[in-house]
C-alpha cells in the first residue's frame, strides 16, 4: 500500500478511534467505531489480506456493531451518564496511555521488519481454508465450541428466569432508568 493511502486511512482510523472514546453519546461512539473498523479493514486489504479484511467489514460492522446498537436501543441509552469529577483518573489514564504508547513504540522501532514478497494467492480464501482445515483444525473446532458458549451464555444471562427459592429482590426491566 502506498504511503499516501496508508496515511489517509491511518489518520482517519486514529481520529475516529479518538471519536469512540471522546464522544458523549454512545451511538456516536458506535458510529465512530464503525469508521475505525472499516479503516482497519482497508489497511488489512492493503496488507494483502483480502479475505480477512472483508471478513472484518462483514463480521464486525455487520454483526458485532449491530449487536451494540441493539443493546443501546434496548436500554434506551441515547444519553450518556454525566461525565464529570473524574479528572484524576483521566489524567492518570492520559499519562498511562502516553507511557504505553511510548514504551510500545520504543520497542517497535528497535526492530526493522523487512517485507517479504508473497505469492499471488497470499491471503486468499483458498489458502486460509487450507490452513484452517489443516494445521488449525483443532483451533477451528474450538471456535465452534466458543460459539456454542455464546449461545448458551447469552440465554443463561439475558433471559429472565423464574424466581428462585433464595430470592433477593424482583427488579423489572420496565422500570424507568434512573436519572
Amino acid at each position: 500500500m502506498p504511503l499516501g493511502i496508508f496515511a489517509f486511512f491511518a489518520t482517519l482510523a486514529v481520529i475516529s478511534a479518538l471519536g469512540v472514546i471522546l464522544q458523549r453519546s454512545p451511538v456516536h461512539s458506535l458510529l465512530a467505531l464503525i469508521v475505525t473498523l472499516l479503516c482497519v479493514a482497508a489497511l488489512m486489504i492493503g496488507l494483502d489480506a483480502l479475505a480477512v479484511g472483508l471478513l472484518q467489514a462483514i463480521v464486525y460492522v455487520g454483526a458485532i456493531v449491530v449487536l451494540f446498537l441493539f443493546v443501546i436501543w434496548l436500554l434506551n441509552l441515547e444519553r450518556d451518564p454525566e461525565e464529570s469529577g473524574r479528572l484524576g483518573i483521566k489524567l492518570l489514564a492520559a499519562v498511562g496511555a502516553a507511557a504505553l504508547v511510548g514504551e510500545l513504540t520504543a520497542f517497535l522501532t528497535r526492530t526493522h521488519m523487512s517485507q517479504q514478497t508473497v505469492n499471488s494467492d497470499y491471503g486468499s480464501m483458498a489458502q486460509l481454508a487450507g490452513l484452517i482445515f489443516g494445521n488449525y483444525l483443532i483451533a477451528f473446532e474450538v471456535t465452534s465450541l466458543l460459539l456454542l458458549v455464546a449461545v448458551v451464555g447469552v440465554v443463561a444471562v439475558a433471559r429472565r428466569w423464574p424466581s428462585p427459592r433464595l430470592a433477593n429482590r424482583p427488579p423489572t426491566l420496565s422500570a424507568k432508568p434512573q436519572t
Binding site: 472514546i21 483518573i89 483521566k90 504508547v101
Partner: peptide, 17 residues
Amino acid sequence: LFAIGTVGVLIRRNLIV
C-alpha cells in the same frame, strides 16, 4: 489504536462504550 482503546476503558463511565 491499542493505547487509545486503553484510555477509553479507563475514562468512560458508560459500560457499553
